[in-house]
């Protein structure tokens, strides 16, 4: 064993500072496969004993869309009873489910990883990262199912669909930032995860999923635009339902939220992560 090449590691007391970013990100990158593998295995383990298994993850938003379709499309009906409204609903609900899953899994990722955290040293951001990877793995089949409804609903098909990967990428970064914030928050306040469903419910109603921006009164639109998911859903609608490139304003605004959340959430998480082992 050669001692000369082995790097010297020093552990010293710290204040609330960001750990050295270079080594941290290198270690995170080196361990990325573990995050993905953990994500896949957690999904596999979670669906171990239900008959439909992972099918439920797609079935859930699909059934929810059915409920909303009956409510808004048929009973409150008017001009939006057709199959195209169903595809509008699905595009929004699936995308929202992506955020919901990332947030839900992310919030519990640190607290439920107690044994792992107490017994191994690794960049803690791996756990929320893995939660977002899980959510993304669940999102992919939903996009496939949406594709079918996209065609049934007679939505436009063209080169503008090439924007979809970019929008999903922005959405993923957005979710990661959010997952980092809530993962750290849950360590300090365990009831975060019990009040999360209500936060998500009101967030769903405040987002342009069940309604379209054009249906809303002009004067409250600036207020609606405060919603961090607003520009993302706006661009999503433009690409999928209007069949055109997303307007640069919306795209930039969405990217700004995503990067901002990632930086803010990353800072919040990294400055606290060395405390997690003591807090769990």
């Amino acid at each position: 064993m050669s001692t000369a090449v082995e790097p010297l590691q020093v552990f010293e007391p710290h204040t609330r500072q960001v750990p050295p970013l270079g080594p941290y990100l290198r270690e995170l990158w080196r361990r990325r496969r573990f995050a993905v593998h953990l994500a896949r295995m957690n999904l596999k383990a979670a669906s171990y004993d239900t008959a439909f298994g992972q099918l439920w993850q797609v079935l859930n938003p699909l059934l929810l869309a059915g409920v909303y379709y009956v409510l808004f499309g048929i009973i409150l009906g008017g001009d939006r009873g057709g199959p195209d409204y169903l595809s509008v609903l699905l595009a929004g609900l699936f995308a929202f489910t992506f955020t919901r899953n990332a947030l839900g899994l992310g919030a519990t990722s640190i607290v439920s990883g107690g044994r792992l955290i107490l017994n191994t040293a690794f960049p803690r951001a791996l756990l929320p990262l893995s939660a977002v990877a899980s959510a993304l793995l669940l999102y992919v089949p939903m996009l496939g199912v949406y594709g079918v409804f996209h065609l049934i609903g007679g939505q436009p098909v063209g080169w503008q669909l090439l924007w979809v990967p970019l929008l999903v990428a922005i959405h993923t970064v957005f979710n990661l930032g959010l997952a980092l914030v809530f993962a750290a928050l849950t360590v300090y306040f365990r009831d975060t995860s019990s009040f999360l469903p209500y936060l998500l419910r009101i967030w769903l109603y405040l987002s342009p999923v069940l309604w379209a921006v054009d249906d809303t009164p002009e004067r409250i639109r600036p207020l609606l635009a405060i919603n961090p998911l607003f520009p993302l859903f706006g661009a999503w609608h433009e690409v999928l339902l209007d069949g055109r490139s997303p307007s640069p304003g919306l795209l930039g605004y969405a990217a700004l939220w995503a990067v901002g959340l990632l930086l803010g959430g990353g800072w919040f998480f990294l400055t606290r992560e060395r405390e997690f082992a003591v807090r769990i």
């Binding site: 790097p7 010297l8 020093v10 552990f11 060395r274 082992a277």
Partner: peptide, 13 residues
């Protein structure tokens, strides 16, 4: 490196 020290120093090669 799992728990942070409050004072002192740990050097590991």
């Amino acid at each position: 490196g799992i728990l942070p020290p409050d004072t002192g120093r740990v050097e590991v090669r």
